[in-house]
């Protein structure tokens, strides 16, 4: 049962990732990325990380994907004469396609060789508790307090920086 869920969600994630790779329409790619994120969140649940799965759905699907779709819509060409046939089209050079295929498959073969070659000796106990929220909260507030504060400052700086960059500084207006 668990194995069936694992393999079906893995296939969902990988198939939607492949759809992004072969789709020429960026909006479809963004929606396929939504499916890929959901598949990855299900894999997190199957690995015993329930809090991370919910965070993944809230941050990626609720925040990042909406931002990306806004970005796609805001960067449309206003004076596009060849509209309506192929909206949101992404050009792909054949040479770039070959380079991407070679880099991707080569890296996959390399990583697969490493994974098969390495015999990971796991000595800890497998997660058995129902929820990881308590452990994550205690760890965040004790041994990981400094990274937590730095992440907060990073988010503040990113917020200020993004608002400043996106500000319209056109003197003509």
């Amino acid at each position: 049962m668990e194995a069936a869920a694992f393999y079906s969600f893995s296939i969902l994630a990988i198939a939607s990732a492949l759809f992004i790779l072969f789709s020429r329409n960026l909006i479809y790619g963004a929606f396929a990325l939504f499916l890929a994120f959901l598949g990855v969140a299900a894999l997190y649940v199957l690995a015993g990380a329930d809090f991370l799965a919910v965070t993944q759905i809230m941050v990626y699907v609720g925040g990042i994907l909406v931002l990306l779709i806004f970005g796609i819509m805001l960067t449309q060409k206003a004076n596009n004469n060849t509209v309506s046939d192929t909206p949101n089209k992404v050009e792909v050079l054949p040479s770039r396609e070959i380079a991407g295929f070679l880099a991707g498959s080569g890296l996959f073969v390399f990583l697969g060789y490493i994974i098969l070659d390495a015999r990971f000796a796991m000595q800890g106990e497998v997660i058995s508790s129902n929820s990881t929220i308590r452990t994550i909260g205690v760890e965040l507030m004790t041994s990981h307090l400094l990274p937590f504060e730095i992440a907060a400052i990073l988010l503040l700086v990113a917020l200020v920086g993004a608002a400043y960059l996106a500000l319209n500084r056109n003197p003509a207006q």
Partner: peptide
């Protein structure tokens, strides 16, 4: 597999 597909997307 997901990492390599992401790399190919970024390149192409």
């Amino acid at each position: 597999a997901l990492f390599c597909i992401g790399l190919a997307i970024t390149i192409t």
